[in-house]
Nucleic acid binder design. Sequence first.
DNA 1: CTCCGAACCTAAACCGGTTTAGAGGAGCAG
DNA 2: CTGCTCCTCTAAACCGGTTTAGGTTCGGAG
Lengths: 347, 347
Amino acid sequence: MPTERPTIADVAERAGVSKGLVSFALNDRPGVSPQTRERILAAARDLGWQPSLRARALSVNRAFALGLVITRDPEIITGDPFYPSFIAGVERELAPAGQALVLSVVPDEEAELAAYRKLVEDRRVDGIFITDLRHDDARIALADELGVPAVTLGRPEGASPFPAVSMDDRAGIEAAVDHLVGLGHRSIAHVAGPARMLHGSRRRKAFEDAMARAGLRATMIVETDFRAADGARATRDLLARQEDPTAIVYANDPMAIAGLGVAQRSGLRVPEELSITGFDGSDVAEHIFPALSTVATDAVSWGAVAARVLLQEIAGEEPGDTELPPARFIPRESTAASPEPIPRAER
Amino acid sequence: MPTERPTIADVAERAGVSKGLVSFALNDRPGVSPQTRERILAAARDLGWQPSLRARALSVNRAFALGLVITRDPEIITGDPFYPSFIAGVERELAPAGQALVLSVVPDEEAELAAYRKLVEDRRVDGIFITDLRHDDARIALADELGVPAVTLGRPEGASPFPAVSMDDRAGIEAAVDHLVGLGHRSIAHVAGPARMLHGSRRRKAFEDAMARAGLRATMIVETDFRAADGARATRDLLARQEDPTAIVYANDPMAIAGLGVAQRSGLRVPEELSITGFDGSDVAEHIFPALSTVATDAVSWGAVAARVLLQEIAGEEPGDTELPPARFIPRESTAASPEPIPRAER
DNA sequence: CTCCGAACCTAAACCGGTTTAGAGGAGCAG
DNA sequence: CTGCTCCTCTAAACCGGTTTAGGTTCGGAG
């Protein structure tokens, strides 16, 4: 049976000083003579004293934890390559700082707001991550109302009192389009994410801009919910159209992989007859056949930097916005020269 | 500016009673007259009082949180379909109970033990989940030493003081083998998980048993680290052997998808020339071509039940071991009748 | 020799709850 | 009327730290 864990009072007694002085010594604060400090530290060591995070939390009014809420239908959360890496990056910063991550996974936006509110009102966390920004994102106002430090992944549309950590995903999409145009494609479609999600519409805009710059019309765009099933549906839609795309730019990898499945199933050869690009650099995308050309984002760094910024903010500094290296396009096997434009009927 | 949040003392003053009585009233404990109780509740409501979790944590010596440590190389964590669903299930139980989940993601086993220890010694959590059991798992002893309630996913090998929540994954593997044998396959290989992970070796054993029962020899088994890249490597190994498998049973979906890629790349038609099965029922597996026959596990329920058991344990009950419905095999398109056994040379 | 300030330290308040010991009053039995 | 019990409630201790106000001691300046 583990004997009662020693408290600061035990240390004080053993060192023959007052509680307060022990606290000073242990926190490296001035006003303690070197000998006494040494004696106190020795006593603490002898007793195997460890600070009680709870007592500290109560007296200094800090949680020593950060909060993240992920909004995903639990049945379909699988397959998203972003969060696990992001969290690993966050952890990389938090662990050495003695902070922890409190995670909530909720099914919808209503529950999301409630979860953030609860986390903050319970004072479980000192700051929150706001990921997957949406248009008119209610979380910005909520965090502001709650007076909690926050960091946003990407810059929100309106004014935001919080620092943003952004990664230019436009560059990756543009590079993908440029790559395809360079291969002779002129009929390029885009399977977009939800328009209400900022990165969904931003990638779509990037697609449109890149097409325009290439002198092409971006007419074939299908909106999805980012899920593999919807990526498959969107691909079927596109392949059923009059004007047949010779290339499809997907807003994420799971949809691209599902789209590849649809194309292959309908007898289309990839990349000979249809080129495909993904987004997010998931592990498995590299190993399918043909290997998926995709846009890699460094979610690990994103998490690490966001965590660092949030900690700075909590510490009272005023970190500015941060721009991470842009997402970069990785050509692999799923993209190739555009086929001769042969009317579908003759195929 | 949010005015200072009211404390229990404010409520007491407004209701004209002592702090202690307020605490009694708010916790529905006997010894408070109905009128007074009503007055106290009204006062709390008027002031918008909310309990301070921190103060409560300190006085009742509880964290109101559970801990989970995930061990994965951050660079390759992506693609694992299990944890996101598992966590969603956990959350489903925790949120209504007013509990939170503290998550750590660490790169290796050493850091894993340190993370658990830190979580518990900091008293950040009241109980821990032990997932991905290994042989001679040091975490059992650690949890025992720390005296922290725990729940294991699956039954560990040795004696364990903790309740286990298990899902029979053997059944799924056996069903997969039976399915393949029924299709005429006799040369079936297995791409296994790490032998030191319990579910890795258990699935392998299930494979061997099922093969034996069918009167077949389980000679073609390759061990991997569960990652897509290693699944691809294992597949190349198998396809390079003398005795050519007509079917491969993979220990998880990412490896199966990668293996499919390898097969297709080498010109093998799936399922006509090679049948493939996966494990875990990831979202995307359903949408590739051919759609992956796989074994579905209900990770969401697993999380929910594990959380419930852990909460019971913390509440002082002594929940027994739980057995979830077994994993079940879902035949799709990646499995078909065995090809005629034609020596490779003639193909 | 006196006075002042710095250095070191103690005692006590504080964070915001829970819990215990016991006070006071009402109701009831004897 | 007395004594006992039960009910309701208060005061204070407690959880384990941090922080503040203030008390000693000592050396050096005047």
